[in-house]
Amino acid sequence: MKIMPCPLNGERNISEFAYGGEVLDLPAPDCDDETWIDFVYLENNTAGVVREWWYHTPTAYWFIAERDTRTDEILKTYPANEVFKDRVDFAAPEAPAAKE
């Protein structure tokens, strides 16, 4: 059983966590269909270090882990607000998503 270092709860068995997918930028709501479909359905399947969402189920806590998919080594974990610092809004249909 793998150990996941949780930023809130410390080292825990991986069975206490759920995987939430790669950390991706949400495309602008008015992006072209190809971009949207790529975002919704296609995985990058990167061989290397990826940023991933993980969820500690007992505390309902989402955080981010950097993991090397070649070795399954978890390099570091940190709270989501280290990446997502600002409020995101969807102002008007033509405006791009505010984040990055």
Binding site: N9, R12, S15, E16, H56, T57, P58, T59
Partner: peptide
């Protein structure tokens, strides 16, 4: 405090 799984139920 440990917020964890006890007998497969979440517990504090």
């Amino acid at each position: 405090i440990a917020q964890t799984s006890v007998a497969r139920m979440n517990a504090i």
